[in-house]
Design a protein around this nucleic acid. Structure first.
Lengths: 246, 246
DNA sequence: TTACATTTGTTCGTATGTATA
DNA sequence: TTATACATACGAACAAATGTA
């Protein structure tokens, strides 16, 4: 069975899945950018030659995956990390009494390097490929509680620099969106307990050998493309890492 | 606006939400039990007097919440914890190389007690209400890696005993389902790093003061009813706690 | 304030396809 | 083969939210 519309690689079978693929393709090609509205249902129906229900089912899934956001009476928008709800989707640290707070970030390290084994494996690179490697110290209520060691492929972030990272007005994932057209839509995380080393102890003002929560994260864009590898260490004396399993 | 069908407390407004509420009510009253099929779409349409699309939208949400499972050509079933996919929904421990394995469980403690402050707060009890409190040691490949300290209200598990807990053929949540008609459908978890105490060290064969991952879990049934409070401690030397954030 | 056009949300009903027993 | 059950697709009508003239 051939493609039913435009040049999208439709394998056929289920029409709404084809529509979803086509929408996803348009998104990853940047036809509609984060925070922008996509065309109205009526226009998309004309474009794809399908019924409302079929289009809706395709969009339903993209909404469920947090890729699109619908607003009745306004339109359907490409999701961003700017939106308040989306920030805490990827920042899951709360005070132990349940209080949510936005962290302040200090860039503590930045350099260009060859990917080590762990980074290459996590990002699907060849060992030796270039990465930018940088560290952030995150504070809540003026107390440093978390250190993020982050690696991203130079290939996907060719113009990244320490200055631009320092000047970013927004969240990191928002910066990826606005300045590099890269949309983080999913993360895989693995958690362990570890002990604070000398640097951890200094930066977080704790004793060496304190227990820390370590989070190894791989962040993905469309089509399961791996964008970022991050190792976080969290001081859980007064905070905790939370999530809910529905 | 009054109820549109049977005795369900319909506040009106959105029909498919009413249907969903009615289905949920029937489920929590035990009209259909775990692993059983609910009536076919055609029969439910007659019962509720709605169209296919409306019924389907209600069921769609229950499927998305892992409460029902659809099988084309067979029927729609009440989810259980028996099913292979569902076990690892709540047991998120993997070997560091990614290998999944079912744990073996040893019941290490069991007693009836008055709820302490943490248990009462987590389960919404008055301090002093009766709980069953028991501990499991979980092993992977014959090595103990996790200790679960579990508390449940006596009121919801009146006939629970050490013998029944020890003889249960299946997973714990499956036991709750089969023997007490209680369906765990969601958990909230909070994670911290902590250090092994003497008992942890003895039971897991590690040094006192080793770093452990601590997981505080509240498990819910329908209507956000709190059923179980659990504090787990995991040795992350060779294993890790995983999840993905879509 | 009101009226109107636009956009998404809900509900209906029907026809056909696909998987299962 | 046949009957049953869920899955997909279509299209129409009306409701509700939004922004604007």
């Amino acid at each position: 069975m051939g493609s039913r519309f435009d040049a999208s690689a439709s394998i056929g079978g289920v029409l709404y899945k084809d529509v979803k693929r086509a929408l996803l393709a348009a998104l990853s090609e940047g036809e509609w950018k984060p925070a922008e509205a996509i065309p109205s249902e009526r226009r998309l129906i004309e474009r794809f030659g399908v019924s409302v229900g079929t289009l809706r089912k395709a969009i339903d899934e993209l909404v469920a995956e947090n890729i699109l956001i619908r607003h009745q009476g306004r339109g359907t928008y490409v999701a961003t990390h700017r939106m308040e709800d989306h920030f805490f989707r990827f920042f899951r640290v709360l005070r132990q009494d349940g209080h949510r707070d936005y962290p302040t970030v200090r860039l503590a390290k930045f350099r260009r390097a060859k990917a080590d084994k762990a980074e290459a494996a996590a990002l699907g690179l060849s060992p030796g490929d270039a990465v930018f490697r940088f560290s952030n110290v995150l504070s809540l209520e003026n107390t440093p509680v978390m250190i993020d060691d982050i690696a991203v492929p130079v290939e996907r972030f060719p113009t990244l620099s320490e200055a631009r990272l320092r000047e970013r007005p927004n969240t990191l994932y928002n910066f990826y969106q606005d300045d590099f057209g890269i949309n983080i839509i999913r993360t895989d995380e693995r958690l362990r307990a570890t002990l604070a080393n000398a640097e951890d102890a200094e930066w977080m003002g704790i004793a060496e050998g304190s227990a820390l929560l370590q989070v190894l994260r791989v962040a993905y864009s469309y089509h399961d493309e791996r964008i970022e590898y991050r190792v976080s260490k969290l001081n859980t004396t007064h905070h905790e890492f939370t999530f809910s399993q529905p």
